[in-house]
Each structure stands twice: as structure tokens, then as C-alpha cells.
Simulated scan of single mutants.
Amino acid sequence: MRSLEALLETEDPAWPLVREWLGSASNPVEVLPRDEAATGEVLHQLQVTTRSPLGAVAYETGGLLVDGGWLRILGGAGPRMRGNLATWNALGPHPAVASTRGVLLVAHDVVGGFFALDGGALGEGRGGAFYFAPDTLRWEDLGRGYSDLLAFFLGGDLAGFYSAYRAAGWSEAASRLSPDEGFSLHPPLWTAEGKDLTRVSRRPVPMTELLALQLDLARQFDGDES
């Protein structure tokens, strides 16, 4: 593994560019405080340099909250959000979830959607961004890389993206959640009954619980179809 010093790009770091994107963001975004020593460990576990936007977000932030906390972009370690790019990808001594081989989880949302970069499990392993949709329990190719995904989070049409997943009052309720929590929905969005959001109830649960449950359900469905 490369040392932390080798990963800290000094000549052409990406953080100034990411900071420009944050300053011009049209969607509300909050940069969470970081623990500098801990973010260094996260970067070391990821083995990416701060020349990349992914490395910059990992090292310079404790994560990002977008749209009042509806969307959570994973970063390094900090006091506000326990989950980070290392723990969510089962890297290091304190994994938050079981290993998801061949994908790198980079963000999640309150309705149980997860964003990941393809490391070989979802396609050609070229780092393309995918979304695990809570209404299909399938990974959907977003046709963009991490930088474009981050730009979409900060300035894209999130209201349109989430139009089928967000009922009246859900945004306000989401803003009261911990960044490590999401909504367990009943009936689930992937059922016929769950398409009518006015009839869907919600309760806060850990995001790690949502990921484990939905990946397990997706595997069961794949088994039924085979």
C-alpha cells in the first residue's frame, strides 16, 4: 500500500476545484467537519490520491449533506457522520457493512438508495457510477463517473431524480434524521402498493440496516428468477 504522504497530492490537488463546485452549487449543501487524523486514515485505506475529487472529498471533509440531508455523500471521518468511505466499503479495522466486492459505495439517500462506483461487479470495472434504486432493487447505470456524479449532486435536478420517491413532508422529516439513518418504508417502494406514496409509512433505521436488507432481497429475487 502507498503511504499517506504519497497520496497527499501537493502540486495539483483537487480540493480547490471541489471547493469551487461547492461555492457555485445550486442545491443546498453542507460540508461536514472532519477529523484530520482520521480522514488521513480513510484516504490511506482507499489508496486514492487527493489529486482526484474522490480523494479530496475523503481527506478534506467529514462528508457532505445535500438537499437538507436527503442525500449524503460519503467523505472521511468526522463527528457528525459516523459512516465514511472506508467503513462503508469494509476497509480497515472497523467496517460498518459486509464487504461489497467489486463496488465502491460513495453516497446514500434517506429512502434507501445507494450510489457506487463500479469496480467490476456491475459492468466493466471502469469506475462508472451506478444507483441501487429502492423501487427496483437493481443497480442502474448512471452513465457518468465520480466527478460528474458529484457535479450532479451539487447542481443537478434532484427534485426530478427523486420525484417518484418523495411524498409531501418527507423532506422535512429527512432533515431531522442523523446522516447515518434512513427511512424504512412500508409497504416498500418496490411493491405495487408502495408506488402510492400517500399510503407509505416510514420509520428511522440505520442506513447500514437498509443496505443489508435490500441487497439480501435483491439476491433472493435474483435466485427466484434463475
Rank of each mutant, 00 (worst) to 15 (best):
G63P: 01
G63R: 00
G63I: 01
G63M: 05
L64Q: 10
L64A: 13
L64K: 09
V66S: 09
V66T: 07
V66R: 06
V66E: 01
D67C: 13
D67Y: 11
D67Q: 13
G68N: 07
G68P: 01
G68A: 07
G68Q: 06
G69L: 10
G69V: 11
G69W: 01
G69R: 04
G69A: 12
W70L: 14
W70V: 12
W70S: 07
W70Y: 12
W70C: 04
L71S: 06
L71T: 05
L71H: 02
R72V: 14
R72E: 07
I73W: 06
I73E: 00
I73P: 05
L74F: 11
L74Q: 05
L74A: 14
L74R: 05
G75F: 01
G75T: 06
G75M: 03
G76A: 09
G76P: 04
G76K: 01
G76C: 08
A77V: 05
A77L: 00
A77P: 02
G78T: 09
G78F: 00
P79Y: 03
P79Q: 07
P79V: 10
R80Y: 00
R80K: 13
R80C: 13
R80H: 09
M81A: 15
R82Y: 09
R82M: 12
R82G: 11
G83P: 01
G83S: 15
N84Q: 04
N84G: 07
N84M: 05
N84L: 09
L85M: 06
L85D: 05
L85H: 03
L85E: 06
L85C: 07
A86N: 08
A86K: 02
A86Y: 00
A86Q: 02
T87D: 13
T87K: 10
T87N: 15
T87S: 15
T87G: 09
W88P: 05
W88L: 14
W88T: 12
N89V: 12
N89A: 06
N89Q: 10
N89G: 12
A90H: 13
A90N: 10
A90P: 03
L91W: 04
L91T: 08
L91G: 10
L91Q: 05
G92N: 02
P93A: 15
P93M: 07
P93K: 10
H94T: 14
P95S: 05
P95K: 04
A96Y: 03
A96I: 01
A96K: 07
A96C: 04
V97N: 02
V97S: 06
A98K: 04
A98T: 14
S99M: 12
S99Y: 00
S99R: 14
T100R: 15
T100H: 14
R101N: 13
R101Y: 13
R101H: 14
R101S: 15
R101T: 14
R101C: 11
